[in-house]
Nucleic acid binder design. Structure first.
Length: 122
DNA sequence: CTGCTGACGGTAT
DNA sequence: AATACCGCCAGCA
């Protein structure tokens, strides 16, 4: 899974690219915006395989879980990096390592996301 | 087509 | 708040 070409992944990357600095979105929110409200897990998979070249254009650090926490499993280094990046953007974490979604969650794109039935394609 | 794998999410404990 | 479960899903072998 080194070559990220699957359509769903690309839509995820495109949407996350729109999240402004200082704001965050949840995996489930991204899925919902892509007309796949139950594919939160797949969104996580997409970001996990974010290709190196896109690390510069896709603000992956702005995607956290519905509890306001960082979801990266295993790689502690990666977790620290995400938190550091977010804090440098002005986002605060409470003593439990959680972000206040009420305050920092992105409202979503102004214009409805164009998702050409990637799902129904066969 | 079948079975696995998770940067998930909602519930129950 | 922290765990344990369990249902979901796109991708891939």
């Amino acid at each position: 899974m080194t070559e990220p070409h699957p359509k769903f992944f690309l839509y995820v990357y495109r949407l996350v690219s729109q999240v402004p600095k200082g704001k965050v979105v949840t995996y489930g929110q991204v899925a919902a915006l892509l007309s796949a409200p139950r594919a939160a897990r797949a969104v996580g998979t997409a970001l996990r395989y974010l290709p190196r070249p896109l690390l510069r254009t896709v603000p992956w650090q702005r995607v956290i879980n519905a509890s306001g926490g960082i979801s990266i499993r295993g790689d502690v280094y990666r977790v620290d990096e995400q938190r550091w990046l977010l804090e440098s953007e002005g986002i605060e974490f409470d003593r439990y390592g959680k972000v206040n979604l009420k305050k920092y969650q992105w409202a979503g794109p102004k214009q409805k996301v164009k998702t050409p039935k990637w799902k129904l394609e066969l």
